[in-house]
């Protein structure tokens, strides 16, 4: 369960939406690299809910349940039809409804086009008090979609958040770890927050009852038609970047061995050279 939950939540934020952006990703623990081609072998790799998104979802549910403020937790994802599985898991964990953004026109999107699509859907969903995202996805590792979405929506963003300390009077206080210690950051709401998991976080495991209840919850699929605009705004066509090549870097590390008393001296001078 989440530690040190939100202290306050003002009345104004009641009955509004908390939107959680999630992604279905390949389980990177199961991925192997083809030694011949150096590329990832994706075949037969199970898909999972991105763990940072799962944390964000748990945080959203905590906000909703702890304060019984009637906020609706909406899980939102862009992906192929198979991604509905991850959204169904979100519903079983405790989201109230889910939206899958799925259309051939959305395929091949870079982080900008992904953020654009998510932002369009968030606008269509109507007023939200908070938008939560995992700070990055296990497969892409860009950490760009959260802040880009915030920018497109004109919202403040706080990134790499571990905990939400308070949410009161139209203001949110978040805690994040930095190299020097912890930072407490305040922002007006609505705001977008990207989350990192904490070591004490234990994901909520949906049981039979929750899974059965999820069957009855609403999972809508929105296409290009639902979001509006032209094909040029989305997917590969709407992307600002192009992937021209993917490869595994050929790293040739050379080991150096220091031996005996002389070796210690040599090591010290070598280290000095590096520092």
């Amino acid at each position: 369960m989440l530690q040190n939950p939100i202290e306050h939540l003002s009345v104004e934020q009641k009955n509004s939406k908390i939107i959680v952006c999630i992604k279905q990703v390949p389980d990177t623990q199961e991925i192997k690299i083809d030694p011949e081609t150096g590329t990832l072998i994706r075949e037969g790799v199970p898909s999972i809910l991105n763990p940072f998104d799962e944390y964000a979802l748990n945080l959203a549910i905590e906000i909703r349940d702890r304060f019984r403020n009637n906020s609706e937790v909406v899980a939102l994802s862009m992906g192929p039809s198979q991604a509905a599985e991850a959204l169904r898991k979100c519903l079983a964990i405790g989201a109230d409804s889910a939206i899958l953004l799925s259309d051939r026109a959305f395929a091949g999107a870079d982080t900008y086009a992904t953020s654009y699509t998510l932002a369009k859907a968030i606008k269509k969903l109507g007023p939200a008090s908070l938008i939560l995202c995992g700070y990055e996805a296990l497969d892409g590792n860009t950490a760009q979609v959260g802040p880009e979405t915030a920018r497109l929506l004109g919202l403040p963003a706080i990134c790499y958040v571990e905990r939400v300390e308070a949410l009161d009077g139209g203001e949110i206080t978040c805690k994040r770890e930095s190299e020097e210690g912890y930072e407490l950051l305040k922002s007006p709401v609505p705001a977008l927050i990207t989350c990192m998991t904490t070591s004490s976080f234990e994901p909520k495991l949906p049981g039979v009852r929750e899974i059965m209840a999820a069957r009855r919850k609403k999972l809508e699929v929105w296409s290009l038609e639902d979001l509006g605009g032209s094909k040029d705004e989305y997917g590969l066509r709407g992307s600002l970047t192009r992937v021209t090549k993917t490869y595994t870097p050929d790293i040739k590390r050379k080991g150096v061995r220091f031996e005996g008393k002389e070796g210690v001296k040599e090591l010290i001078s070598a280290l000095r050279g590096i520092i």
Partner: peptide, 9 residues
């Protein structure tokens, strides 16, 4: 989908 989720849990 439900059975898969349950197995995962």
């Amino acid at each position: 989908e439900e059975q898969k989720l349950l197995k995962e849990s």
